[in-house]
């Protein structure tokens, strides 16, 4: 499965430095990463290390200080609809309805109204928001807003989806429900996903592969393949053992 041809996105030796008050701060240190087609990869790391920066660099929103990002054979130089992002801050367009938000990408691409409405409706139905097409984001709960964010990202049929702690702002109950939802949605609309979290249960529940990160500057500490059937059981013995192991190696870093 893992050959050169089916690498969806790869970054080679990327580093990122910010300068603050005349001092240079290294956030990411020579990170090399391959993500394969249809893989669900979770970047797991504690605290405020450069996880969002990794997403920004891979999606093209920020350039790395050194190193390069390639999607298939193409170098990533800026943001674009081949690399969709679901944000922690959700970031819907508040002046557009649910439909307006979901069809935004297709409208920007010049897809004719009837066609894009049909596709957007499919996604709205898929994320469970049928009947809310004409609601404005402000009138929806946080969980429903993030469903719109997910539908908006899937709607443009990107080859890779970045999810930057998408459920970080939600309460525990909603979060648990959304984790199940993302498994269900992604089984219907299969995409390559890079998912960032600082929640270990979320990581093990979702991932095909977990990449554990070192804290500031961010680099890869260890990788775990998780190849059991989804959806997974939080109280399963394997689940608890893996959780224990990852927690123990992360604790050493702190």
């Amino acid at each position: 499965m893992e050959s050169k041809e089916n690498i969806a996105i790869r970054c080679e030796n990327i580093s990122k430095e910010f300068s603050a008050k005349g001092r240079k701060i290294r956030v990411i240190d020579s990170l090399t990463l391959n993500i394969y087609d249809n893989e669900f990869v979770v970047l797991y790391g504690p605290g405020q290390c450069g996880k969002t920066t990794i997403i920004n660099i891979l999606s093209g929103l920020e350039p790395p200080t050194t190193g390069e990002v390639f999607q298939k054979s193409e170098k990533v130089t800026g943001p674009g609809p081949q690399r969709a992002v679901v944000y922690q801050s959700i970031s819907l367009f508040p002046w557009l309805t649910v439909m307006g938000n979901v069809e935004f990408g297709l409208k920007a691409a010049g897809v004719e109204t009837a066609k894009r409405r049909q596709r957007a409706q499919e996604l709205i139905d898929l994320v469970g928001l049928h009947g809310f097409e004409r609601a404005f984001p402000n009138s929806l709960s946080g969980g429903m807003q993030q469903r719109v964010g997910i539908a908006r990202a899937y709607c443009i049929a990107p080859s890779i989806l970045f999810m930057d702690e998408p459920f970080g702002a939600l309460d525990a109950q909603t979060r648990y429900m959304m984790e199940q939802e993302i498994i269900r949605i992604n089984s219907k609309e299969k995409r390559t996903i890079l998912f960032v979290t600082n929640n270990i249960e979320e990581a093990i529940y979702l991932a095909d592969r977990i990449i554990v990160l070192n804290n500031c500057p961010t680099s890869i500490k260890k990788e775990y393949k998780v190849d059991w059937e989804k959806p997974r059981d939080y109280t399963d013995k394997k689940f608890l053992e893996l959780r224990e192991e990852i927690t123990s190696i992360v604790d050493e870093t702190l």
């Binding site: 929103l61 800026g78 674009g80 944000y87 367009f93 002046w95 990408g105």
Partner: peptide, 29 residues
């Protein structure tokens, strides 16, 4: 205007020249 909204519009494929009319103006209303 919220820079994340501009980023989201770019990510969804909106051209730079359309950002002013379609993101900056409505969010300023």
């Amino acid at each position: 205007v919220n820079p994340t909204l501009l980023g989201a519009a770019r990510m969804l494929g909106m051209k730079e020249k359309d950002l002013l009319l379609h993101i900056v103006l409505p969010s300023s209303i």
